[in-house]
Simulated scan of single mutants.
Amino acid sequence: MTLRLGDTAPDFEQDSSTGKIKFHEWAGDSWVVLFSHPADYTPVCTTELGLTAKLKPEFDKRNVKALALSVDPVESHKGWIGDIEQTQKTVVNFPIIADADRKVSMLYDMIHPEASATATVRSLFVIDPQKKVRLMITYPMSCGRNFEEVLRVVDALQVADKYTVATPGNWKQGDDVIIPMSVQDPEVIKQKYPGGFKAERPYLRMTPQPGK
């Protein structure tokens, strides 16, 4: 199965470090960051899960739930969590899916045979409250993810949804945003973007981030 942006994220029921998870039910009306790691008791993954745990207050502000996954069994996850907490000085406060039968990995195309025939690559999905896939990023096994970028892109998606804007390269919360070309009515522009706008070109209209 090939997932594309805008697709409904596949539902599943699977064991995890916190018990059985029925994905759509568990997600509720939250955003979800679902991310896979190649294996338990590996160094890069240990740092990534530690970072995710430390960012829980930031995820909470954005109505985001984190959900990790590997093909290791529940008991392995539970043992490894102790290592993560000791070495990364944090508390693992999110579930880790135990995808021993690779059911979820196959649904989300997390196993790339040319990288590994059995382990999941570092796939990451941002899923909105309507269960739509909004972002997909895949890293190689050797490269740890930038979770500050994950927060940044969640901010960008949420601002775009709320205010009908696009965000420029390297945008971060509070920076100017772009009025989409689909918005042309002057009255609508005046209402939606009260800060006015600066047009470098007719197609490039920058406006202060609404709501700030």
Rank of each mutant, 00 (worst) to 15 (best):
residue 148 E to G: 07
residue 40 D to R: 05
residue 62 R to V: 03
residue 114 E to I: 14
residue 177 V to S: 10
residue 40 D to I: 08
residue 77 H to V: 03
residue 193 Y to A: 02
residue 157 L to N: 09
residue 150 V to F: 11
residue 69 L to N: 05
residue 18 T to R: 13
residue 44 V to K: 04
residue 38 P to W: 06
residue 128 D to R: 08
residue 28 G to S: 00
residue 22 K to R: 15
residue 82 G to V: 11
residue 17 S to H: 05
residue 33 V to Y: 12
residue 63 N to I: 02
residue 99 D to N: 02
residue 124 L to T: 10
residue 122 R to T: 06
residue 134 R to M: 04
residue 191 Q to Y: 03
residue 72 D to C: 05
residue 59 F to L: 12
residue 196 G to T: 08
residue 86 Q to F: 01
residue 137 I to M: 11
residue 186 P to A: 13
residue 61 K to P: 08
residue 161 D to Y: 05
residue 124 L to V: 02
residue 63 N to F: 01
residue 169 G to N: 12
residue 154 V to M: 02
residue 14 Q to K: 12
residue 38 P to D: 03
residue 177 V to G: 13
residue 209 Q to A: 08
residue 106 M to S: 11
residue 10 P to V: 14
residue 20 K to E: 13
residue 39 A to Q: 12
residue 52 T to L: 15
residue 199 A to G: 13
residue 40 D to P: 04
residue 204 L to V: 10
residue 197 F to A: 08
residue 106 M to I: 12
residue 139 Y to C: 02
residue 37 H to F: 13
residue 145 R to G: 11
residue 49 L to C: 12
residue 210 P to A: 06
residue 129 P to R: 06
residue 196 G to S: 05
residue 129 P to D: 08
residue 27 A to H: 01
residue 200 E to G: 00
residue 160 A to Y: 01
residue 63 N to M: 01
residue 201 R to K: 13
residue 159 V to W: 01
residue 17 S to K: 09
residue 185 D to R: 11
residue 20 K to T: 14
residue 146 N to Q: 04
residue 93 N to W: 05
residue 184 Q to C: 11
residue 209 Q to T: 11
residue 30 S to I: 00
residue 7 D to N: 15
residue 21 I to Q: 10
residue 203 Y to G: 08
residue 125 F to T: 00
residue 187 E to H: 08
residue 21 I to W: 03
residue 200 E to M: 10
residue 102 R to C: 09
residue 57 P to L: 03
residue 8 T to W: 06
residue 168 P to I: 04
residue 154 V to A: 02
residue 39 A to R: 13
residue 73 P to E: 09
residue 138 T to C: 05
residue 63 N to H: 10
residue 149 E to T: 04
residue 167 T to F: 03
residue 139 Y to P: 02
residue 161 D to L: 04
residue 106 M to K: 13
residue 207 T to G: 05
residue 3 L to P: 14
residue 136 M to D: 01
residue 32 V to D: 06
residue 186 P to L: 08
residue 1 M to V: 15
residue 29 D to T: 15
residue 86 Q to H: 07
residue 157 L to S: 11
residue 48 E to G: 06
residue 23 F to E: 09
residue 84 I to E: 00
residue 123 S to G: 14
residue 153 V to Q: 05
residue 117 A to C: 00
residue 63 N to G: 06
residue 194 P to N: 06
residue 28 G to I: 00
residue 129 P to W: 05
residue 166 A to Y: 02
residue 208 P to D: 05
residue 38 P to L: 03
residue 31 W to A: 10
residue 178 I to G: 07
residue 7 D to L: 10
residue 173 Q to R: 10
residue 156 A to M: 09
residue 75 E to S: 09
residue 155 D to H: 00
residue 9 A to Q: 14
residue 21 I to F: 03
residue 4 R to S: 15
residue 212 K to T: 15
